[in-house]
Simulated scan of single mutants.
Amino acid sequence: MSEADGIVYSDVKFTRTKRNTRGTTSSEAEPTYSEVRILKTHPSTELPGSQQHPVSNGGSKVTPERVVIVVLSALLAAAVIALGFTSLDNMHTKQSFQTLRDELEAVKRNLTERHCEVKSYNTVQQTSPQPPVVKENDPCLKCERGWEQDGRQCYYFSIDLLTWSESRDKCRQKGGDLVQIDSRDEQTFLELKVREKMKNDGDMFWIGLTDSEKEGTWLWVNGSPLNERLTFWSASGPDNWAVYNPDGEDCVMMGKKAGAPDLKCWFDEFCKYTRRSICEKPAETGHFTLQCV
């Protein structure tokens, strides 16, 4: 559209009064013309009530749905990483669990032995007129004088030289029996003690194992059979050597003075030979009167 299209001309007539030289005003009017230019504006083509929307610049829109997806993806990745670290920790934990449990059992045994304190009979008689009730798992258990304790068992290492049968009778008189070995730990304890007490290689100790009822069938003194997976025979035993004794070797002794401890120190022997012996009985409170602290 040209500039002329937007302009409208209009004539406006003004009247100016005319003075004469005498100072009076004449009634004649002198017309004056003036040009007025009016800019013609075009009405808006937009409909009433319509709103003008900004033109999109072509960029992508960030919607709430996309934000949620991004957050969930990040959380899932973090969870996968955490699971990987947890699995690795569990693997290391399983490898060391058995070792820790064994160490705990050793600590518990030491603490149990230190937990009990022997007090005099008169002192306890004043504080507790009734004898204490001994529970099955009571940790306050001790051995009488002359016996040596390992856990819940008491052992007596005799200095008397007797036959196997005589040794068993002596053990019974003391309230026990010839020792029955039920674990590797017990064998370790006994072997170390026997080494301390032996005077020479022949100074051995009877234990409660024999095959006198049936050759080759080894039984403990309580009648239970020997566990073949838990034996500690020496390299030469059992051989039932019958050169000097036709009856053979039906009783078992233990002991090894020389060499490093290797637990394999059982020997079958003629039951009529005289040896020292090991008696065994459970630890108990009995008349020893114990107090737990």
Score class of each variant (00 low, 15 high):
F189R: 01
D150E: 14
E213Q: 05
Y155E: 00
S212T: 08
K199F: 13
T188M: 09
D211E: 11
S120W: 14
D160E: 09
D150Q: 12
V194Q: 02
W206T: 00
S183G: 07
S212F: 07
I207N: 00
E166H: 02
Y121L: 15
G208C: 01
S167A: 11
L161F: 14
S183E: 07
F157R: 09
Q130K: 14
G176P: 03
T210Y: 00
Q149G: 09
Q187V: 07
S212A: 11
E148M: 06
T188A: 14
G146N: 06
K119M: 09
P139H: 03
L178F: 05
T127N: 12
Q126C: 15
E186G: 04
D185K: 05
K193R: 05
S165C: 06
I207A: 01
L209R: 01
E213S: 10
R145P: 07
Q153F: 08
L190K: 02
G216K: 02
R172G: 11
R152G: 10
R168H: 13
Q180M: 13
K197N: 10
Q149Y: 13
N122T: 15
E136I: 13
N137A: 14
T163N: 05
S120A: 15
K174A: 12
S167D: 02
D150H: 07
V118H: 07
D201S: 10
S120C: 15
Y121I: 15
M198R: 04
D182T: 13
R168L: 07
D177R: 08
Q187M: 09
Q130H: 12
S212H: 05
I181S: 04
G208V: 02
Q130C: 08
V124Y: 15
E215A: 12
V118M: 07
E191K: 06
R152I: 14
Q149S: 11
T127W: 12
C140P: 02
V124P: 03
Q187N: 09
P132N: 11
T163L: 03
Q149M: 09
R184C: 13
Y155M: 01
R184I: 13
E148G: 05
E213H: 09
S120F: 12
D201Q: 07
K135I: 15
G151A: 06
D138C: 05
M204L: 12
K199D: 11
L192I: 12
T210W: 00
Q125C: 12
E144H: 14
E213N: 05
R145C: 14
K193M: 11
K119G: 14
D138H: 02
S165P: 01
L178P: 03
K197E: 04
D211T: 07
Q130L: 08
C143F: 04
K197S: 10
P139G: 02
Q173H: 11
K193H: 06
L209D: 00
D185C: 08
W164A: 00
V134E: 10
C171G: 09
